[in-house]
Design a protein around this nucleic acid. Structure first.
Lengths: 347, 347
DNA sequence: TTCAAAATTCAAAACGTTTTAAATTCTGCG
DNA sequence: CGCAGAATTTAAAACGTTTTGAATTTTGAA
């Protein structure tokens, strides 16, 4: 293993000069720099990041803490984020330190990792309203970037326009004449679920429609939830059944498709379905039968900005300029159609 | 941030003594040790692992490199391993550095991470026959533990008895009178697939049965593979169809169930099915209809020994005593039954 | 040629720990 | 009391880098 000193000795220079030459400082002579670079290359020099961090305070390691989410199925979402993030961080010469926390105490893993004193920052996902992790990291002055965003956000984040996409989705359904539009939402505390609900209520309100309590159903964004809550909604148990349903994710829509089939309703004849599509590879909206109308924003797309923001943050950029709210495309396919004639009366 | 020096100064001791006191060296006086421990506690001292590693060569960071496995669905297997491993490593005060390699060059991510000089070792999964990663890490003298094992293994590993479980599975089918037994195997190169095939052939050979080439089908261990290859096998296209099939995983069995249903075969009336069950939460063998007979070894069970072996390895234990081959239980349920009368003739 | 200023380079300290070798303080025995 | 040996503690070096402040060399103008 060649060190800075080795190169210095080899060239009869001081370690200081070699360090500066390799780090592009302006005060080092052109000839010297060339010599040093050549020698470094030739001797296969790799800086030791530990030593670097010891003096500079940077290790290039970024933490990601996830909850096992015991109940539900293996979340393809996490898979997508982890692989994408690792890839994008690597391209910026950072690495992902992954931690699965089974602990009840949300903050415990963060404390543990921070104690080790080896991480430069954290990526957080799925924030909740007034998330304790965010407060904690802010107090300790640890750099972090959030995927998603909760209210009162004075930190770096990347989020999609959840409120807007919900509005757009509902507007599309309204334009098709639907009035009884339900929302199969994600888990109640999550900010993305709240934002989408707000957008849904915006659109419904603007159309002068009231939203009965049962029209919004919460739960984990998976197929089971779509099936059971879909069944409940379509059974007529709550009153006249919705003619259109906006789903928080494609797996939820898949469950809803099954429920509709079991009940004998045709899509889009009896029921229009629209969903938000995270574009995970194993659940492709085009392969639905009929093909699913969606608002689409690939989870993968989030990884690059997240990594870039982290990089900028570590370089000293202020968090408040590192905020992105990405717009979302609406792709109309075959799961949405005009309201059936007998279903035009609002709730 | 309190350092060793701070404590030393506070107590009027030298950093050396403080270091020794906290690390349990025998030569430090009882009273001194008590004082030091008290002060460390009181001042909230956390050793800086970077400085530690700089001198000791240990960081407590363990690398795990995974391929995105683009084609297939989000592998619940990986999910299970990552969460379990992270948890078990954390219990031993180690951390998981995760890297998703999209690169064609298998070794590139290992090189990159090694260059950073920050990892203590690697966990490898799904080794192949004569795996280049293993050769590479051995050459460089990097500690590693393998989940699974390839031939000629002179390294630390944890594996289940793939050959034995395959033999047991086939024996069970043989005892029920089956003769035309097929194997829906995993991907050809993988050592676990090879071992299971060997066990299958052992049992078939001992029963004096020949195995036609089409009776062993390779592919990714997912539902699609089970469905398409199952359909092919059951269609009769290759000759008389098998009366029993041994599946390499429960998702494969799920695909096979669908294929059998589509073709109109009943399980276990017309077809017996047995599978190996990794016990991932989202595909429970008991919930199959009929409940699936399996050999069972939860993937989670692998994580603890893997972490423990890594810990031992780093403490200097020789790799060749850190080898475990775990036996596997066979659980008979309702997907296996006696051979149908018209299917008793061997291939 | 001389000298100040600019451009380079250097030696040493620092980061927080462990470890080596040496120094100091105890202990108990004669 | 004196001293060998044990027990304890210390100072200093080391790990590989960056950074500070000082020293050296080069440059250009007088």
């Amino acid at each position: 293993m060649t060190t800075l000193k080795d190169i210095a000795k080899e060239l009869g220079l001081s370690p200081a000069t070699v360090s500066r030459a390799l780090n592009g400082f302006p005060e080092v002579g052109a000839r010297t720099r060339a010599t040093v670079e050549e020698a470094a290359e030739r001797m296969g020099y790799r800086p030791n990041p530990l030593a670097k961090k010891l003096v500079s305070g940077r290790s290039g390691m970024i933490g990601l803490v996830l909850k096992p989410d015991g109940s539900s199925q293996a979340d393809p979402t996490l898979h997508e984020i982890m692989f994408g993030l690792s890839d994008q961080l690597a391209q910026r010469d950072m690495d992902l330190v992954f931690h699965a926390s089974s602990s009840d105490d949300l903050l415990e893993p963060y404390k543990r990792l921070l104690d080790k004193n080896i991480l430069d920052g954290f990526i957080l996902n799925a924030p909740e309203e007034d998330d304790p992790r965010i407060r904690f990291l802010q107090e300790r002055d640890v750099p972090f970037v959030v995927h998603g965003r909760a209210a009162g956000h004075d930190y770096a984040y990347y989020d999609i326009d959840n409120r807007g996409l919900a509005r757009d989705s509902v507007d599309l359904l309204l334009n098709l004449g639907h009035r009884r539009i339900a929302l199969l939402n994600g888990q109640a505390g999550r900010s993305y679920a709240q934002d989408r609900e707000a957008g849904y209520r915006d659109a419904m309100g603007r159309a002068g429609l009231t939203v009965p309590e049962f029209a919004v159903q919460y739960g984990p964004a998976n197929e089971d939830h779509g099936y059971t809550k879909g069944l409940a909604l379509l059974s007529g148990r709550f009153g006249p059944r919705p003619t259109a349903i906006f789903c928080v994710s494609t797996p939820v829509a898949a469950g809803l498709y099954r429920a509709a089939q079991d009940i004998g309703l045709s899509i889009p004849g009896d029921l229009s379905v629209i969903a938000h599509d995270d574009a995970v590879p194993q659940m492709r909206a085009v392969n639905f039968e009929p093909a699913l109308t969606v608002t689409r924003s690939p989870l993968r797309d989030a990884c690059k900005p997240l990594a870039a923001k982290m990089e900028a943050l570590l370089k000293g950029a202020p968090a408040d300029i590192l905020q992105t709210l990405a717009p979302v495309d609406l792709i109309a396919r075959n799961s949405t159609g005009p309201v059936p004639t007998e279903g035009e009366t609002p709730w």
